[in-house]
């Protein structure tokens, strides 16, 4: 079957099984390798993408439910208004190995877009579905604690 969706602003046509994972379609058919598989069962958040603006897990998302959806991956987020935040995310130590990073960037940006100055608790609530094994999360708090824009 064919599914029409918009990925990072571009209309795309994806052919596949209705129960194929969006994660695999992004990686194998659209060469968007930023979206990572960390567990394949909705525990780690590495595969997070925005679907119609909301963070969802692309490993749990069948293609049939992506029809007509607007999907934004880390590649899309990174080319948008997030650049100041991304730079700070690096300099504040939010990144080490980088495997969880795309999912964290996507979720964090979804938070900051709605709430440019989140509290520590709000950051914890938003990112509770994104596991990081390197940073102890403190670098992530440092970066998000300074808000969405460079001020």
């Amino acid at each position: 079957m064919k599914f029409e969706l918009v990925v990072n602003g571009n209309p795309v046509l994806i052919e596949g099984n209705p129960m194929d994972r969006l994660l695999d379609a992004l990686r194998d058919k659209l060469d968007l390798m930023g979206t990572k598989e960390g567990c394949g069962e909705g525990e780690c958040g590495a595969c997070t993408v925005l679907m119609n603006g909301e963070p969802v897990l692309s490993c749990l998302l069948p293609l049939i439910q992506c029809e007509a959806a607007e999907i934004e991956t880390v590649e899309g987020v990174a080319t948008g208004e997030a650049s100041a935040f991304l730079e700070r995310f690096v300099s504040d130590g939010g990144v080490q190995c980088g495997a969880c990073t795309p999912g964290i960037i996507v979720t964090a940006w979804a938070l900051l877009r709605d709430n440019p100055h989140p509290t520590r608790q709000e950051v914890q609530a938003a990112l509770a579905g994104n596991l990081c094994r390197c940073t102890g999360y403190e670098g992530i708090h440092r970066a998000l604690g300074r808000g969405a824009a460079d001020e």
């Binding site: 909705g42 909301e54 897990l57 609530a125 509770a128 579905g129």
Partner: peptide
């Protein structure tokens, strides 16, 4: 339930 992403679905 779960985290933000799971709650969205």
């Amino acid at each position: 339930i779960g985290g933000w992403q799971i709650q969205n679905r």
